[in-house]
Design a protein around this nucleic acid. Structure first.
Lengths: 213, 213, 213, 213
DNA sequence: CATGAATGAGGATTCATTCAT
DNA sequence: CATGAATGAATCCTCATTCAT
């Protein structure tokens, strides 16, 4: 018959330990790569015994999955929320351009909060196994689909020129990924990000043409 | 005393064996991923003994390196050849647009020839070790630099609008990567590629603006 | 300062906890076998903490030993009591036959009371370690010795035919073990046991010969 | 392309190694018991590397299974062969007694050849897991069934007295097991066995009655 | 006294690599 | 030169046991 107090303390301790392990895992995964990481690396960094790892996770894959799943859910939730409201579509070229920027900016804070995890997402996740590879690809495709939906709508309304919306959507996703990777690898500072979004958005909407007056 | 003929035959056989191993390695790397691949998988697929592998390569990394290096050299050679001729720069917006397409088209056949290797290049190579990760990043940066060089030139000549050439170059590389990946994973057929290059080039140069007649 | 009453309650509780652990251990030992059983299985079944186990027993072997020893002592005590009274030996073939049945029937209630433990005695105990293996064998030998003593006596008195008493004693023990095992594994119902004892005793004393009227 | 000769030599070597492992396993299983035996014990005794064990067996259970299965098959084959020929049943009390001895004697050489394995069969096999426990029980039951079949037949022909054939069959199996165990544990020498079979058979058929001249 | 989180020694298992044939 | 059996270091993983609360 453990006291309520005792139970709560144990609970807290367990959560702390698990978080410790998760953070250590992220650190080592980043530094050595998922495949080069041993359980012993993780527990050594966390200052815990080997057994403690296995009390909390069944395997290396499981920690990795837990780390990523949490971030992905946040991303999906945050991004889908409020988006694709069919009754609230932009009503001009400029509104589209604006909406586009806003969408990009929505992702920024999530990535900023999870920088290391996103690095793992891009680099290691597709090499864990087929299941993970598929899941990562699906996520990219979701973003691409949303982009395409807007493009199709804009084309129909003649707000933008006629184009192969699917291809353009892929191009947009590609740009996004490239810039996120650069950012994560320290090529851009956090404060520049907004500027970069605007520049990139300009490229998408205006191209490289010298504006005709 | 082996005759000349015998020597030559042995030589040929050895090369055949090595190619057999390389092709098997590619096949298994693709199917299972570099890290999930064992030497025993490779030699089983090649119908050779374990020892034969170690007669030809020092380790798994070495096969992978050899596979990739060959493709990368080809890519670098093919692409740099004739490029960046300072005396032969485009002389108008349209010439730039054209030059851009031609540059893209130069890469196409190399990728077409090495589809499987390029998949490994994108997915697995950055996870082998730090050295490989760096090398892959360097290659992207090279492409980005070339693009930036042209952009800077075009801006100076006022053939294109003033823009952050570095960022735009990264965007272009990002689009390229995205489309190559899609292609490699079977989303585009080989015959569509040219069309895709043109569409993407249009996006870069013209954006999404409805052309003002 | 704990009151007498409190002390007694604590004492009772402790005994209850220990019995709980013992019963859980028996249950799990039976179900999974001694070697496949973990301490964690036992405490989970008992709804107690891991530590509580080690408060009551030094190890898994110790619980097992405690469980068995209690039963064995009971068996030895019950059986030796009143037996082998040199002044009270049977005085005819029929008295021997009768005495034999009575001896068997003495063991029955002890086994009935400890069915699960006896299963462990037969199956698991000889595989714990050499010491246990020896102990189990000794017990069988004790029974065998007693049987042999009676047989020798009966032979000397010419109540039974001349035979190798040692071998016959072993045969009798073997039959006994076999029927006990069958009973424990549910092949005989409790109510049949007396009948089985009689049948088996008949076999020992009369064999399979058709009685010559 | 390995030569035929090479292939054969390799094959032989592999078989030798596997037999070495099997024999070591038997030795250690006997000495320490199945559950106390580690793979490292087995390979140390066999003077082989740890890996070599795993090239030949998936687990400790698998060696044990292989060891036992071979012996069991031999036993079943040898015993069922020629037995239970419905057209060749004994035709008198004495023929039954004789047939019974012959049946026992059939098992002797198989056990003599596999003494150590039979020890494992009796002691360790029922504690490996439920599957093994069942299999061992099934084998006993097979022997018991055969015995019962003969008994029923003999009863119908009035060659033996009316009795509960099922119980008597179990008694016979029990005696057999007991004597085999004694033999295996060195209580009987190999040369005594025949005598023991005869004595035991006499007990079954004649009981302990003083023969009426 | 009871608890269960944490531990780490011990054993299982894999697989790159060697080497005798 | 080719082979594949053998190897054992490296790593995974379990679970009896401890101990702070």
């Amino acid at each position: 018959m453990p006291s309520e107090k005792r139970k709560k303390l144990d609970e807290e301790k367990k959560i702390k330990t698990k978080n410790n392990l998760i953070n250590s895992a992220i650190e080592i995964f980043i530094k050595k790569g998922y495949h080069q990481t041993n359980i012993s690396d993780i527990v050594a960094f966390a200052n815990l015994g080997q057994g403690t790892f296995y009390r909390n996770f069944r395997s290396k894959r499981e920690v990795f999955e837990e780390i990523l799943k949490k971030m992905i859910q946040e991303l999906i939730f945050e991004f889908s929320d409020g988006n694709l409201n069919i009754n609230n579509m932009p009503k001009s070229f400029d509104e589209y351009k604006d909406k586009s920027i806003k969408s990009f900016l929505k992702i920024i804070p999530i990535i900023k909060k999870n920088k290391k995890i996103v690095i793992l997402f891009f680099r290691d996740a597709p090499t864990i196994d087929k299941e993970f590879e598929q899941e990562i690809n699906d996520i990219f495709e979701q973003f691409s689909s949303i982009a395409q939906y807007y493009l199709d709508h804009a084309i129909k309304q003649k707000f933008i020129r006629n184009c192969n919306s699917s291809l353009v959507a892929e191009s947009i996703v590609g740009m996004g990924i490239q810039h996120i990777k650069n950012w994560l690898h320290g090529k851009y500072s956090d404060s520049e990000i907004e500027k970069i979004v605007i520049e990139t958005n300009n490229l998408i909407f205006l191209g490289l043409l010298t504006p005709s007056v």
